[in-house]
Structures are given as C-alpha cells and as structure tokens.
Design a protein around this nucleic acid. Structure first.
Lengths: 120, 120
DNA sequence: TTCTTATATAATCATGTAGTGATATAAAAG
DNA sequence: CTTTTATATCACTACATGATTATATAAGAA
C-alpha cells in the first residue's frame, strides 16, 4: 500500500473520481473498452443529445481517461494509452459495454463508415 | 478485462465513485488506512466541523468503503473488510495519509484515549 | 437529575453539475 | 458558394452536493 501515487494531492484525486461519478461517462468508458468510437456513434448508442455527449467526453478527456483522434469532420475517442493498474481495475469492475453497443443495433451513417469507424 | 463486476449497473457504479469524488472523503480513507479512528479524532485531524465529518462518513459507509464500531459514546470507523482489487488500487494511488495524522499532532481527549482509540 | 461529551440528523444556503437549445466552427458535398 | 454533416461551446435551468447552524439522541460524569 502507498506505493504508486498518480495524484499529488487529494484535490487532484477527487477531480479524477468526479469524472467517473456519472452513469453516462461510465457507459462511455465501457463502450470504448471495445474500441474507438466517433461522437456521432456514441450519440446513437447512448441515445442522448450531441452536446451532452460532447460535454461528457470533454470531462473524460481532461481527466486523462480517454484520448481523441480527429479525421476529416469526425472526432474519434478511445481509452487513453497509459492504463494504470487503477484504471484497469476501474474498467474491469464496470458492467459490460457490449450490451450497450449491441442493443443500439446499426446506427452509423454511410459517411461515418467510410471514416475508419469500428462500427458494429 | 470484464471479469469481476462489483456493480450490476452503471448507476450503482457511479454512486460508488460519487463517494470518492470529494477531497475530504479521500483524506478520510487515507487516514483510516493507518487504522480505525473515532469521529472526534477525524474532526481534529481534518480540522472540520463535526456535522460535516459525520455526513462524509455516512456517504463512505453507505458506499461500502468503511465500517463502524460503536463503543460507549464513541463511534469508531475503519476501512471495510472486503477490500476488492479496485478498492486496493484506489487506496494505493491515494496520497499518503500519514502526513494528515502527524500534522495534526496530539488532539485526543483523555476520555477518547481510554476508549481503545489508536491515537498517534 | 443535571451537565457535559460524542455523534447524528434536519434545515438552509451557496455552489457545482447535467441536460437542453441555440450558436459557432469546420469539413465535405452539391 | 450554399448546404449538409460533425462537433464544440455557450447560456440557461433544474437538480445535486457540501458546509453551517441548530437540534436531537445517547452515554457518562457530577
């Protein structure tokens, strides 16, 4: 115990947990554990408004949980590369994101499919 | 990945992370990682009001992170017994609670000391 | 019993946060 | 160039949350 410390202060650590303290953001992490997704895919899968999803993605990105990749007019989000043991444990104890994706069925536009999206 | 799942739903998982999304509650967990403490000790160590500490302890207890033990007029709190890999990872990546305790110096009342408290 | 100590809870207030609708930006299509 | 598509951001509203003050409960002490 008390070996690796990713946050220098309790304030910083609390900020990271605030990013996880939301049902929608946890669903996003579970979905991204199956591969990157563009915003419009997440909007379709989660059946929520685009501004709401974008704001959640911003918080997850600022907290360091996800990264973004811009291609043409799409922005693809994926889990961040530096997966600490803590983040791995967080992801492993989350409900499975597979149901989230499958329940949504086909939703990608033709143009989104052209853009390297990993549509199911 | 996706092996053990402590929360059945994303809603439940989010509730647990909400309990961690506060600087004071993380400090309490770091302090309790060095042993159980009664409420009045935590009030002294954290230099915060007693109702505020009690409310934080309530949230940590309802989220399953800590347990309580009542003796006479004191209530001692300690880390919960069932430490999952996730909770272990959370505690291991927290700032050290030792400084919190030491910085506060002597603070226990004579009566609190009689009550089996692990005062530093 | 009365007073003091330890803790919990309720009411209130100030602040933070999620969702919505409107708007801005940027890229590609027509 | 105009339109459409994808995304981000802003302003606003409703709701959640943390701290404080006051109060309630319970156990000792006097």
């Amino acid at each position: 115990m008390h070996v690796t410390t990713t946050s220098d202060t309790f304030e910083e650590a609390a900020e990271r947990y605030k990013a996880l303290a939301d049902k929608t953001r946890l669903r996003i992490l579970a979905i991204l554990s199956y591969g990157e997704r563009c915003v419009c895919e997440l909007v379709a899968i989660l059946a929520m408004s685009q501004p709401s999803i974008s704001q959640h993605l911003r918080k997850l990105r600022l907290a360091g949980f996800i990264k973004e990749r811009k291609t043409a007019q799409w922005v693809y989000y994926a889990l961040a590369d530096d997966q600490t043991p803590l983040i791995q444990a967080i992801l492993s104890e989350l409900p499975d994101g597979k149901e989230e994706v499958e329940r949504s069925g086909a939703f990608c536009t033709d143009r989104c499919l052209e853009g390297e999206a990993t549509c199911s």
